[in-house]
Computed example of a mutant assay.
Amino acid sequence: MWLAGEVELRTLGRSGCAVSALALGTMTFGAETDEAGAHEQLDVFTEAGGTLVDTADVYSAGASEEIVGRWLAARPADVRDRVVLATKGRFPMGEDANALGTSRRHLRRALDDSLSRLGVDHVDLYQLHAWDPLTPLEETLRFLDDAVRAGKVGYPGLSNFTGWQVQRAVDVAEREHLAVPVTLQPSYSLLVRGIEAEIVPACRYNGLGLLPWGPLGGGWLSGKYTRDQRPEGATRLGEDPGRGMEAYDRVAARARTWDVLEAVQDVAEARGATMPQVALAWLLARPAVSSVILGARTTDQLRGNLGAAGLALSAEETARLDAVSDPAEPDYPYGEVGTEQRSRDLAG
């Protein structure tokens, strides 16, 4: 691992491609963040040493990719060359029955349309945005391999796959001598650790780098929600109370949520850091993480989150956060009995 600017660099999974340990997610571009604000975020991110920019065709119905494309076109060659560009395809981009999924027919058009909106002839990472139960995996992986061979895609990646789906994708690609996925983009945070049971082990075993999205738990780990007051004002839920309040109430009802927030706040106050910085620092230190995706509505939020790049938690702080965020003991085969059955050492 080494540094570029302020942000640490790591390899993109088992590939040789170097990326910043903090990535810029662009889901807000064209929706909650206008073009001027988006371009300002991109400038701040790259000036801090950030390189990995992640988007998707479905973000703002293609507007996010267009905004990123116009930013790239207006920047000097040396800035463009430093950007490692990632996008995704799978979700609906029209009403036609073939305007979604991971079939060769849809992905061929989706990739070409993404390249056109981004104004580039290739992307470094092209990710399947989710599993498609209707398309044979061989068909999907052969398309990705063809795209790599054609120079339109540097590496294939996955997003929102389960553990068995990750393993199946790797097995099929290796068996058929196709380009093997190098990354998985899952939801992962101090409040969402379910992927540690099967998905993280599958990725570590196969050398896939994790690109966690939602690292602040949908805003919970930013510190803007309190136990005694429902959202209002300058938060997504406060500005639109009808949006997501059912999900808010579900998360708020868990005692573990508030225990995690209290622990994060304590660590942040003791370190002179912010709660988001602590939550991001914890995630950056998890096994197999290549880059954590930051999604910000404003440039000030992005600047604050980038501060996590210089924060290393102590063993004691990490242990406290691990313990308080540990999800409830899962049932067999993931619990104590199942773990004992799968364990083995040289002593027998």
Rank of each mutant, 00 (worst) to 15 (best):
G214S: 14
T102W: 02
Q165I: 08
A328C: 06
G233F: 04
W71Y: 15
A197K: 11
H39K: 14
Q341M: 12
R175F: 10
A18I: 02
W282S: 02
L42A: 14
L128N: 00
R344W: 14
V267C: 02
G157D: 08
G62R: 09
S15L: 07
A279D: 02
G310V: 11
L141W: 08
S222T: 15
G238T: 04
P241I: 04
R204C: 10
D113H: 07
I195V: 15
N160P: 11
A253F: 10
L107K: 08
R286H: 06
Y225W: 12
G163A: 11
L137G: 07
V7D: 05
M27L: 14
L280D: 08
G244Q: 11
I195G: 01
G238P: 04
A328R: 11
V182E: 01
R90E: 12
P287L: 00
Q127I: 07
L311D: 06
D326T: 13
D259A: 15
A197S: 12
L42S: 12
G335F: 01
L184D: 11
A323H: 11
T183W: 01
A23W: 00
P92L: 06
W282Q: 03
A56Y: 01
T33M: 06
A197N: 12
V84T: 13
A255F: 04
R10H: 12
L184T: 01
G16S: 13
A281L: 04
P287F: 02
Y334Q: 03
G209H: 02
A56V: 03
S291V: 04
G218C: 08
K152S: 09
A97W: 10
D326I: 02
A99D: 15
L137Q: 11
A197I: 09
K88W: 09
L346N: 13
T51M: 07
D96N: 12
D78C: 10
G163P: 02
P241C: 07
A315L: 11
Q301E: 10
A63W: 03
L178V: 09
D240S: 14
D300E: 15
G30A: 13
A296Q: 05
